[in-house]
């Protein structure tokens, strides 16, 4: 079987997810042996930017009209599109102020000089094109990325966790930071896969992997309010990484907060 042709591209983002691929040092030769890498500008210049691709890995968020154009072009070129990282999967940090109009936000950050570029409300890739596999994380976990690649090579999709960070946290037998310390921890509503890294270091989960499926946001908000956190504390934390997520939409949250 011919090696699948792959490309790796970044839209607006920090390139941290692409860096994770390069940081797979022990596996790099295996990766290079299994894949025909056509374009990966972070690793090497001079890629083939025209050929059809079997798999394209895309990190970052659509923040400017140019991002959308690139995304649609990649979608047309590739058989499978894999969103890597929370920006691509959920909108990520660029979307944290989505309640403001983009022009207003641009003005507040860049002043009148910002007029030289266009911007839109940052949204995840899936709101523009079909995404075949979404691997969240800020950045993605190396193991999940490699398992994703391995599954795709076997003609399958990987089984990503469908449960919350709390599950991993308790499997590792870390003391509960919400129950014991009363800290603002998003472990109960955040998708697992990081092996509860932050609670393992004694820091609460900040939700960098986005909401877990079927997250009970209303109950989480209620318990945080009972612990003394203000509506603003909770909103800021919830919207840091995944503001465009349907489950985190403001009306729903306010309903939960008033319940």
């Amino acid at each position: 079987m011919a090696k699948p042709k792959v490309g790796t591209y970044g839209l607006t983002g920090c390139a941290g997810d692409q860096l994770v691929i390069i940081n797979c040092e022990d596996e790099l030769l295996e990766i290079a042996g299994a894949l025909d890498i056509k374009s990966f500008s972070m690793a090497a210049s001079g890629g083939d930017e025209d050929c059809p691709l079997d798999i394209v890995f895309v990190e970052g968020t659509v923040v400017q009209p140019e991002d959308e154009r690139v995304l649609r072009w990649l979608r047309e070129r590739a058989e499978l599109l894999v969103a890597i990282g929370t920006c691509a999967v959920w909108g990520g940090l660029p979307a944290m102020k989505n309640e403001m109009r983009p022009e207003e936000l641009r003005m507040s950050v860049y002043g009148p000089e910002g007029n030289t570029f266009q911007c839109v409300s940052p949204r995840p890739l899936s709101s523009f094109v079909k995404v075949d596999l979404a691997i969240p994380g800020c950045p993605v976990e190396k193991e999940q990325l490699l398992q994703g690649v391995a599954s795709l090579l076997h003609g399958d999709l990987p089984q990503l966790p469908t449960y919350a960070v709390c599950t991993d946290c308790k499997m590792a037998e870390y003391p509960c930071l919400l129950v014991e310390q009363g800290w603002l921890c998003l472990g109960p509503i955040t998708e697992a896969g990081c092996k509860a890294r932050c609670p393992g270091y004694g820091r609460p989960c900040i939700g960098c992997r986005g909401p877990v499926q079927d997250a009970n946001i209303a109950s989480e908000v209620q318990v945080l309010q009972e612990k003394g956190f203000t509506w603003l504390d909770i909103q800021n934390r919830l919207w840091t990484f995944a503001a465009p997520a349907e489950s985190l939409k403001i009306d729903f949250l306010k309903e939960g907060a008033n319940a």
Binding site: A164, T167, N216
Partner: peptide, 26 residues
């Protein structure tokens, strides 16, 4: 919250999920 905490800490919750981890080489 469906967070799974109670099941993890329960002395008698014994359910498990089975999954495969694949090597890149195939």
């Amino acid at each position: 919250l469906s967070c799974g905490t109670c099941s993890m800490v329960c002395p008698t919750c014994y359910c498990y999920a089975v999954f495969d981890e694949l090597d890149l080489a195939g």
